[in-house]
């Protein structure tokens, strides 16, 4: 087990391999090595490492990826519970995302 592992079985990342063209940009942008590309086809190998940042989804030129992207930040989520807004990483008073 790698040292920095978060909760198992919660990541919402999905890959539609039928759409994948094997450009491997997802492996480039992912900071946690969630994907590998073999035979010009991407595959999710470490789903539990996904932090749902959305980098792969936005950069996939054929929209083969989807995820409920957002900030993994407790105070942003508390703020959204109170205000009803989307959890936002606004890095100002009351939020400590960064």
């Amino acid at each position: 087990m790698s040292k920095n592992e978060y909760l198992k079985g919660v990541a919402t990342l999905k890959l539609d391999q039928d759409k994948c063209i094997g450009c491997s940009l997802c492996t480039t942008v992912c900071p946690h090595a969630v994907f590998i590309v073999e035979d010009r086809l991407a595959r999710i190998v470490e789903l539990d490492h996904c932090m749902e940042c959305g980098a792969c989804v936005g950069n996939c030129p054929v929209t083969a990826l989807s995820v409920n992207a957002g900030v993994g930040c407790a105070s942003a989520i508390i703020h959204s519970w109170i205000t009803g807004e989307e959890p936002s990483c606004d890095c100002t008073e009351g939020s400590n995302c960064c």
Partner: peptide, 13 residues
């Protein structure tokens, strides 16, 4: 979790 580099929003919630 907000400062960490690996927590997902689904997990934090």
């Amino acid at each position: 979790t907000g400062s960490s580099t690996y927590t997902s929003p689904s997990g934090v919630e």
